[in-house]
Amino acid sequence: MPDLSVDKGKLQLKNPIMTASGTYGYNLEYEDFTDLTKIGAIVTKAITLEPRDGNRGQRIIETECGMINSIGLENVGIERFLREKLPVLNNRGISFAVNIAGASIDEYALLAKKCESAGIKMIELNVSCPNVQHGCLEFGVDENILEALVKTVREVFTGCLIIKLTPNVTSIEKLGLACRNAGADAVSAINTIKGTGIKLSFENGKFKKEQVTGGYSGRGIKPAALGAVLRLKKVLDIPIIGMGGIYSLNDVFEFFASGAEAVQIGTANFTHPDIAGKIVSELDSFMNNNGFKTLDELKGALRNE
C-alpha cells in the first residue's frame, strides 16, 4: 500500500487530490457520484460575511477549450455555512478547506476568526475572484496589500492558511513571496483567467450574440497554470497547490513535475462528477504497480531529482 499522504508543514492531506472552490458546492453535492471521504480535501464555494446573490444575467458560456463563469460569489454567507453546511462536513468525515472572500482586510480577518472558533483546520483565501466589483481581486494583485492581508489573517487563524493566487498579474512570484513572508502555509494557483466568451449565430438576417465576461477555466488554461506553478516553485519554500485544466492522472503528474505538492480539480467535475475519487484510485494503483512508496518518491522521479 503506497502512502499517498501530503505532509508539508501545516498542509496535511490524506492524498494530494483536492477539488476546487466554486465547482464542488459546500458539502454533499457530489456524493451520489463519488466517495467524498476519499478526496484529499474538498474546497468549499467561496464564503462571504453576508449572503450574496451573485451576478445577474447569463453566468456561464462554453468556449473552445473551457468555459467562462461569472457567478459573482453567490453564497449562503458565513453564519448559515457554519450552522448548516459545516456540521455535515464534520459528521461525514469529509476533509475540507473553507474558501473565504472579503471586501476588506477586516472582513477577511473576521471570517478567519469565525472559522478558527468553529474549529476549521484549513482555509483558502480567495484574493482573486475576477467577478466582483469590490474586494477580492484587488487584494490579489498588489503584493503590499496582499502581505498586509495575509499577516492580519495569520494573527487570528492557527490552522493551515492557503492563499489562492490569480494569474492576472505581471509577476505571480512577487505575490507568492508576499504570502510566504506574511506567514501563509501554502499557495494555490491558479484561479481563473480573465476572459470573454462570445457565441454568435446568424438567423433570419440578424446576428444573435451571447457574451459572458468573467473567469476562464478548463483544459485551455493548463499551460498557463503549469507556467505559474513553475515560476512560484523557483522562489517559494512553502507548498504550492496546482490547478487549472486537470482532467487526468497524467495532468496531475504534469503539475507535480512543475513543483506542485497537491492539486485541485475544478471544471472537470462538471463533465466527470466522479473524477476526483477516480484519480485518487488511479494514483494509488500507479504508485502500487510501479513501486513508488511515497508521494515524495514519485514527485522526485517526476522532477528528475
Binding site: 464542488y24 453535492e29 464555494k45 456561464i60 457567478i71 453567490e74 462538471f270 462528477p273
Partner: peptide, 23 residues
C-alpha cells in the same frame, strides 16, 4: 445554460419570487 447539473456551481440560476422573498 448549465454547468454542473446538480446545484453546485450556481451557473443556471434564475430569479424567483418565493412568497414575497426574491431569491
Amino acid at each position: 445554460m448549465m454547468g454542473c447539473s446538480i446545484g453546485a456551481c450556481r451557473g443556471c440560476v434564475i430569479k424567483i419570487n418565493d412568497n414575497g422573498i426574491i431569491r
